[in-house]
Computed example of a mutant assay.
Amino acid sequence: MKPLKIAVLAGPLIAVPPQKYGGTERIVYNLVEGLHKNGHDVTLFSTGDSKVNCKLQYLFKEELWKGGVMTKTQNELIHERLNHYYHFFEMIRKEKFDIVHSHEGLIPLFFADMVKLPIPFLTTIHWSFQGYAYDHSDLPILYQFKKYPFISLSLNQRKTGPELNFAANVYNGVSVSSEYTGYYSEADESYMAFVGRIDNEKGIFEAVQVAHLLKKKLIVAAKYDSNRMDQFEKFKSYVDNKYVVFLGEVGEQQKLEIIAKAKLLLMPVNYEDTCPLVPLESLGCGTPTVTFAYGALPEQISDGQTGYVVNSSKDNIRGDWHFKTLGIDGLLEAVLAIYSMSQTEYLTMRNECRKQYEQKFSVDVMVKNYENVYEQNLINLKK
């Protein structure tokens, strides 16, 4: 396709790329870097401490969520975000872009509607409509913007908002060098990995129970939310440095090393996670995943090929998976199956993980899919 002039909107909370926590910002980074590499004229509107190779515009010199600590009150944050969006739209009114791509959800749609942009305004929905931090209150408002194209991150994500104008489904793409596939060794001490956030939503309590019941080591590399200390205190009661080892939040390279050296990733999520990055990184490392059948996980993990998917309960049957046992017992059965594999069977599964990562979840694949979306929306504009 011919090179396009593309404006990409990220938020003011976390710089691009994030130093640690920040899944959306990592995807934005992967996207703008990939588009820039492919010859497009990309301008990212983020924060001044972002580090990208494309053009960068910003209002705030530094991320507002500095070092994982919010530096603003709630009211100040609302004002700062509105100011951030206002300056972004001032930029795109002054310059001639072919496409505007927002990763910031609801509020920029109001600005787009008032400005009456003559070019496509796309929104990738990075959030889940379910979970402790979410409800469905924004759906009726989103339905007012049906004329604008939305991009889902998984087919499951669409089920909660079926009336939205979904122009495409584009899975997240992560960057994992092939060198990580060589990190695993049968000679090293075997362990399972849990990476992400200390929260019931992410399945941390099922994961630590599996570790203790099977007497197998689980390394937990995860952040915790200061607003949900009850979750963290409950988790600490399982940490014994024998079966459950807690490392806290780690950097990108250490995270990939932990996943790559693990026997498996144990991620029994308990909510409709839209398109989590850790299972994709695990695929890239060649590490199988054991998970519950929530959210995008059944779209990411091929049951029996790149890990195992388990139904969480009899009231929540999501598919006819390899193991029919439910809940914790199903997780136990799936984990034991991987530990019981012959070396040939296990290495075949690891190779399949990397293969599916390269086919569906690499940065190059994601960027190509977004280029196709841009091209189609420009064609639709001319009709």
Rank of each mutant, 00 (worst) to 15 (best):
T124W: 01
I141C: 01
L153W: 00
K147V: 04
F121W: 09
Y134R: 12
Y148V: 07
Q157A: 04
F121Y: 14
K147M: 09
T160S: 14
G161A: 13
S128P: 01
I125T: 04
P140C: 07
P149E: 07
L139A: 08
T160Y: 13
L122I: 14
T123S: 15
I141S: 01
T123P: 03
F129C: 04
D135H: 12
K147Q: 12
A133H: 14
N156R: 11
I141W: 04
F121L: 08
D135R: 14
S128D: 04
L153T: 00
Q157F: 01
H136G: 14
Y134F: 14
A133P: 08
P118T: 07
Y132G: 02
P120H: 04
D138T: 10
H126M: 06
H126R: 02
D135W: 11
A133E: 15
Y148Q: 08
H126T: 02
I119W: 01
S128Y: 00
Y143V: 03
I141Y: 01
Y134D: 07
F129M: 12
N156M: 10
T123F: 03
L155A: 15
K116V: 06
Y148L: 14
I141F: 06
I125M: 10
I119K: 02
S128H: 02
T160L: 13
H126S: 03
Y132L: 11
W127Y: 13
H136Y: 13
D138Q: 09
L155C: 10
S137Y: 11
L153V: 05
G161Q: 02
G131R: 10
L139N: 06
L142V: 04
D138G: 03
D138F: 05
